[in-house]
């Protein structure tokens, strides 16, 4: 399923379920103050189901503070819902802001979706 949010043309969100209880949200494009609400909506909807939730940010070209705020909120929600939140981040556009803000240690970071699900 592809979710195109009219508020955020620069972001594309694809949700798939490769196995029962496992959800992968592939995010591509730029996550900033305009597009972050679309990501937030997708994360909140997905995390409500519990299980393993992988946010694949491999194709994210920009991650701003609004995007970081959404990830922080998602981490808190995952704790409440007993869900396992994993983040795939290998591009510098994602790893740099995570490291600069000390959030790299908060999330379970992985190089690929396969390693996140291993």
């Amino acid at each position: 399923m592809t979710v195109q949010d009219p508020r955020a043309e620069q972001i594309e969100l694809k949700v798939r379920q490769p196995a029962p209880g496992v959800t992968v949200l592939a995010v591509s494009g730029e996550v900033d103050m305009v597009s972050a609400p679309a990501l937030r909506e997708a994360l909140i909807n997905g995390l409500g189901d519990g299980g393993v939730f992988v946010v694949d940010m491999g194709s994210v070209t920009f991650l701003g503070s609004a995007g970081l705020a959404v990830l922080v909120e998602a981490a808190k929600l995952a704790q409440q819902e007993n869900a396992s939140l994993k983040v795939v981040a290998k591009a510098r556009a994602v790893t740099r802001p995570l490291e600069a803000t000390g959030l790299g240690e908060v999330f379970s970071l992985h190089d690929s979706v396969d390693s996140a699900l291993a």
């Binding site: 922080v72 600069a100 000390g102 240690e105």
Partner: peptide
């Protein structure tokens, strides 16, 4: 200068 965001994380450096 480096450091974590402020106000939500328990273990910060």
């Amino acid at each position: 200068a480096t450091g974590a965001i402020v106000g939500i994380l328990a273990d910060v450096r």
